[in-house]
Amino acid sequence: MNIITIENISKVYKVGDTEVHALRDVSLTINKNEYVAIMGPSGSGKSTLMNMLGCLDTPSNGRYEFKNKNVSAMTDNELAAIRNREIGFVFQTFNLLSRSNALHNVELPLIYSGISGAERKDRARKALVDVGLEERIHHKPNELSGGQRQRVAIARALVTNPSIILADEPTGNLDSKTGEEIMILFNQIHQTGNTIILVTHEEYIAKHADRIIRLKDGYVHSDEKVLDRYIPTIN
């Protein structure tokens, strides 16, 4: 089943008088329970593509369908609703609210979808348990290690049961051991039926996925299955 269908999308930014083509004529589909890595050097358009896929931005041209709904034509509020219900973001810099504890951070998307207090707390707690943070529920981000912070962010992404998890360099700020642990977690999430889109510039991280889309100068350079997929295991 297609979750994402992109047809001939392009994105043009104006920087002063010059036009920058961040994406040119990109088409791709992503199916349910795929684990896709998007790769490319900086300036290749991978961030733009990720923003597009995450409904944070809309294309200049082309068609973007998310679960058969036309995202290109959506209003700001509709985009916010799609992001809230269908997409779980995981960022390189975690982007947790520093003044709130782990539980409240995870609750946040549920607040915006209007879920009542008790259910919200239950679901947030369960999501934190799922990422292995049952001991750290009431800790604030500055009381957590980098890996733990990223786990909170992953719990926040999972708590709404989104259609896709969109991870932008999730291991970029972590040491390799902790990064590996996070990749194990992603693998588990994938195995439970989730769809993951991973943006990275590290070949080694990309190999965790089962498909790699390489971008170059705004084009899709290659889109291939990973033959030598790396399945992480706990030491």
Binding site: G54, L56, D76, N77, A80, A81, R83, N84, R85, F89, F91, N95, L96, L97, L108, P109, Y112, S113, R156, T160
Partner: peptide, 16 residues
């Protein structure tokens, strides 16, 4: 600003 970005990314509308 960043916090606002995060909130928007996880579903906060302009109104929120």
């Amino acid at each position: 600003t960043r916090e606002i970005g995060v909130r928007k990314a996880i579903g906060a509308t302009r109104k929120t």
